[in-house]
Nucleic acid binder design. Structure first.
Lengths: 210, 210
DNA sequence: TCGTGACTTTACCAAGTGGTCAAAAAAGAC
DNA sequence: GTCTTTTTTGACCACTTGGTAAAGTCACGA
């Protein structure tokens, strides 16, 4: 009789083994498909095939396409903000920022699908993520800009616009995940991201060294 | 009897006034829709509505969704390569590259939809554009890398990896078009691209000044 | 082992999709 | 004006899409 996986004796986070496994399968498949096709372009059939489950079975675990997407986006937001949160106001300014850049590069390498999911969402005008951006990212962004500005005012960093600095860090680091298809064509398929890490260190070190 | 717009007394490029107007309407509408929804996400109905024409009328001018997309991509490739082609091997190295960066920034401002169309295509693995990338972009990319390497070897520019240099120029300049939704949220809707132009000039000037 | 609830599948919609076709309506040419 | 060609439209089609209903199968505790 119970056909809602959230009810029964396992409530809240206490999912059965099968539920844990299948929700993971579905979200992983959906990440793949949404990241490469965008929200509208992705189909439940693709996700089902990728997950190795039937379409109605997918809809047993999630109420619909939208809910899967939203779930992915919510998870993503946390993963995405994390490297920025780790910037330590007490640390050595230049090294903190360069460490942040290295974290971002490594995230691009380790989570390219997440990066592309995010890129797809923002490209389309961030219809489902704009509230998250305003409530989650914006405050952190503002704080970090103020922190960097403080460091610059104190002469610990060369002066430049903190907002554009952060934009350029995001742009350059995520480029290796988001434009991977182009990077592969132009570099002959070698994993370019390693050379990229050194290059970006030089680029931002030269910019920021007082 | 003639129902092929390419036949009749107007052949080749000699399109009637109506044909010119409507093909332009359609391509402009399609650019808008493809850029924000991706290929699969875009529908002929959306394009038709955006163009102010009926769906069968769209298919009178183009044989199908695919042909519209391919036409846009072909046009795009030319627009896209142009700023890079203008780099003058005889010019002053630093100023040539900075001028290139300024052209790219201005293109992001002037043709954001084209930038997003390109981003969408590459994000999805460049399924329709990979041949173009290999035949059109790759040779130009290689030549430019060699040119820059030559400049560096001659001591006209500080040394760095030319491939990653170009990637970082593309990433930072196109970011303002592709991630506009995010940039707007974080800067409070001000047109951030103007400040971006100055910032990027500083960034790459510091990197490349010998 | 058997019953109960958790899980899965088969069969099925209704709406939306890219695309066709023949007929109607405009444009031109004379 | 009238005759021909170009352009536009309304009706339609086959297929895909997100989603549902109900019947089936499985796992596990009593």
């Amino acid at each position: 009789m119970k056909d809602d996986p959230d009810s029964g004796k396992n409530q809240g986070k206490g999912l059965s083994r099968i539920q844990q496994r299948n929700r993971k399968l579905i979200l992983d498949a959906a990440l793949e498909v949404f990241a490469s096709e965008g929200y509208r372009g992705a189909t439940l059939d693709q996700i089902a095939a990728q997950a190795g489950l039937s379409k109605p079975n997918i809809l047993y675990y999630f109420s619909g396409k939208e809910e899967i997407h939203v779930t992915l986006l919510n998870r993503l937001m946390e993963t995405w903000l994390d490297p920025l949160r780790q910037v330590d106001p007490q640390g050595e300014p230049l090294e903190e920022l360069l460490a942040y850049i290295h974290r971002k590069v490594r995230m691009s390498k380790q989570f390219p699908r997440e990066s592309r999911l995010f890129a797809n969402e923002v490209l389309q005008g961030a219809p489902r993520m704009k509230p998250h951006l305003k409530s989650g990212l914006k405050p952190l962004f503002d704080d970090t800009c103020a922190l960097i500005q403080g460091w610059m005012d104190a002469g610990k960093l060369a002066a430049c616009d903190p907002q554009h600095l952060i934009f350029s860090i995001w742009a350059t680091t995520q480029h290796y995940a988001d434009f991977d298809a182009q990077v592969k064509v132009l570099t002959g398929g070698k994993s370019a991201i390693n050379g990229g890490e050194d290059y970006l260190d030089t680029l931002f070190r030269k910019l920021l060294t007082p």
